[in-house]
Write a protein that binds this DNA or RNA. Structure first.
Length: 284
DNA sequence: TGTGGGGTGCATCTTACTCC
DNA sequence: GGAGTAAGATGCACCCCACA
């Protein structure tokens, strides 16, 4: 059972039109769609019986189903997927919307977490519903760069940058005073030694590292482990409370909002373009 | 619980087209 | 031109649900 796009059967233009009408009507009314309604609205010039025959074929192919013998047809998950991928078409995002999204991404600092929160907010607003955005998930974060900046005599700011644009900061309190030149030397050494390594790799190097180098490397590994455990793959959301608070929320409304979110693929494409332009983030 | 409305499935008929 | 075939229309029996 496969469809046109590599999944199998090819639907005739008439079957595609009937399927599209069933999906649109069901989304609008939340009621099973009768062959009579389709026959009247399709403009195909065929009788309800002919529509019924086509509906029966669509049901055989798994695009439609019906709750009971005398009920109209409702789309299946496969029917929705076919509608979204083949029949709905791709809406052109208005220029004003594209400019707004672009402007918003230039307003936030280049940080993955900020981008994810902004992406969720934009999708929720555009789709007038709830949105969930998952950060790209990779097996483990990798070290890119660190800076050690002297704040006061014994206070040092550790700035850790991971591949993918994540930035973490931590203030270190040392036992004895130090100066920026020495901190820069240590940072350069660690940048050379740790480049591209995972937290686990860095842990493996710790026995061979002594003194302050080893302490900083250990802190780096800990920060990366914490990030891997809690933040990679985190789901950011927006608009969920607003949707759940709607008293008239129903199945049909839910389906309509799902379709709006799917239509938001256009918006999502723009968001991903902005993230890529902003630099260096691998969007999965 | 009976009844009416809405809807489907199926058998049958009609029509158009193709092939010999 | 006649037979075969496919597509579409029609009619009827049946099912489900809402309502009094």
């Amino acid at each position: 059972m496969q469809s046109q796009q590599g999944q199998g059967e090819t639907l005739t233009p008439r079957q595609q039109k009937i399927l599209a009408l069933v999906v649109r009507n069901y989304v609008e009314t939340a009621q099973p769609v009768s062959s009579k309604v389709v026959a009247e609205q399709s403009g195909l010039g065929v009788s309800p019986a002919t529509v019924r025959n086509e509906m029966a074929r669509l049901e055989e192919l798994g695009y439609l189903t019906h709750p009971h013998t005398s009920a109209g047809r409702v789309p299946t998950e496969r029917g929705y997927r076919y509608f979204v991928q083949q029949l709905m078409g791709r809406a052109q995002l208005p220029l004003s919307e594209r400019r707004t999204i672009s402007h918003q991404f230039h307003q936030v600092r280049p940080d993955l977490e900020q981008w994810m929160r902004l992406a969720a907010a934009i999708l929720a607003r555009a789709g007038r519903g709830a949105s969930l955005v998952a950060a790209p998930k990779s097996p483990a974060s990798r070290f890119k760069h660190l800076e050690l900046i002297s704040l006061r005599e014994t206070h040092v700011l550790l700035v850790l940058v991971l591949l993918g644009g994540v930035v973490r900061q931590q203030v270190l309190v040392l036992n004895q005073p130090t100066d920026q030149a020495w901190l820069s030397t240590v940072a350069n050494r660690l940048n050379d030694a740790l480049k591209g390594l995972t937290a686990q790799d860095i842990r493996g190097l710790l026995p061979g590292m002594e003194g302050f180098d080893g302490q900083v490397a250990s802190l780096v590994a800990t920060a990366m482990e914490r990030y891997d455990a809690h933040e990679m793959g985190q789901v950011y959301h927006a608009g969920v409370e607003e949707v759940l608070a709607q008293p008239e929320f129903s199945d049909a409304e839910g389906i309509r909002q799902v379709l709006q979110i799917l239509e938001g693929q256009t918006i999502l494409s723009q968001i991903l373009d902005e993230v890529r332009r902003a630099g260096g983030v691998q969007v999965l």
